[in-house]
């Protein structure tokens, strides 16, 4: 769609994630809920990984553990070889792995510019003027000049999500954690958002962990699509997507794309049926 989408893909040198045998048990009032069990996944530096699976399978739990919002019960997660989450360490969110939330979490009381510059300024990495300058450059890259004084509530959902991704990227994180960021969007906004995300990915080469329900979205965006089982969740299979980059929408109709999709549909459907039956058992 623009020059940078046709540029050769560069990949960040760091941001490798190693999820090793992770188990997460919630224990509210003595009722054991095993959200994740023996969940393992290797993500290379600069890799774009999409995770799909039935609702309530523990995708978001995994993301929350990586983000530092929640404890892990067993197992560990390493970031570039250093422990990120273990049962003995206190979870700590940090700007090396920024989350973009499902319903968006731009501060409604701050303007677009104040939102985007929040990270570097609050961490005292840049002064306000330098941060403003940097934010303007990055906003311009995703076609968002001239809205810096607007409040998030004045923007469309597509623009809000783009601003939020920029707010994450300005911190130069090692990993971007995206929790179904385009879920509530209409088809047109969604496909425009995909193109912007791919463009940013191609330009920065950041490791991306992307949760979604949408199989087409997963294949179109990712290098690797991981299918999660129904609760207790673990990675059932991971399929490499060898569609060339830069991607474009025409690929959605190629035989290669459709083959990948049918493979995923099989795997996810099986889990969806299990989840449904488990749900019926719980109800009974």
């Amino acid at each position: 769609m623009s020059a940078s989408n046709t540029a050769p893909v560069c990949r960040a040198a760091d941001g490798a994630l190693s999820i090793r045998d992770v188990t997460k048990i919630y224990d509210p009032e003595g009722v054991h809920v095993v959200a994740l069990e023996h969940c393992s996944l290797e993500i290379a530096a600069g890799e774009f990984v999409a995770v799909v699976g039935p609702s309530g399978c523990g995708k978001s739990t995994l993301l929350n553990i990586m983000a530092g919002f929640d404890y892990v019960t067993h197992g560990e997660i390493l970031l570039d070889g250093a422990p990120l989450a273990t049962p003995d360490t206190r979870p700590r969110p940090g700007s090396d792995r920024v989350v973009v939330f499902q319903h968006g979490a731009l501060f409604p009381w701050k303007t677009v510019l104040e939102n985007v510059t929040y990270g570097p300024v609050v961490q005292k990495q840049l002064d306000q003027a330098a941060a403003d300058q940097r934010a303007r450059e990055m906003l311009a890259r995703v076609g968002l000049s001239n809205i810096e004084k607007s409040y998030p509530g004045q923007l469309s959902s597509g623009m809000q999500r783009r601003v939020e991704i920029i707010r994450a990227l300005i911190n130069d994180p090692k990993v971007l954690l995206l929790d179904e960021p385009f879920r509530a969007m209409d088809t047109v906004t969604k496909s425009a958002s995909h193109e912007y995300l791919l463009e940013l990915y191609n330009a920065t080469g950041k490791t991306i962990f992307f949760i979604t329900h949408d199989l087409e979205e997963a294949i179109f965006l990712a290098d690797k699509v991981a299918v999660m089982t129904t609760r207790p969740g673990h990675i059932k299979l991971a399929i490499s997507v060898d569609l060339p980059r830069p991607r474009n929408y025409r690929m959605l109709a190629t035989q290669q794309f459709l083959d990948l999709k049918s493979q995923l549909v099989e795997a996810v459907h099986e889990e969806a049926v299990k989840a449904f039956q488990a749900g019926e058992r719980e109800m009974a």
Partner: peptide, 24 residues
């Protein structure tokens, strides 16, 4: 999520008080 977002972006507890709790 506003608290979580602020923590992700590196805000301290004091920052969160003035940038999230009060305006929110």
């Amino acid at each position: 999520n506003y608290f979580r977002a602020a923590k992700c972006l590196g805000a301290s507890n004091k920052d969160i008080l003035f940038d999230v709790v009060v305006p929110g």
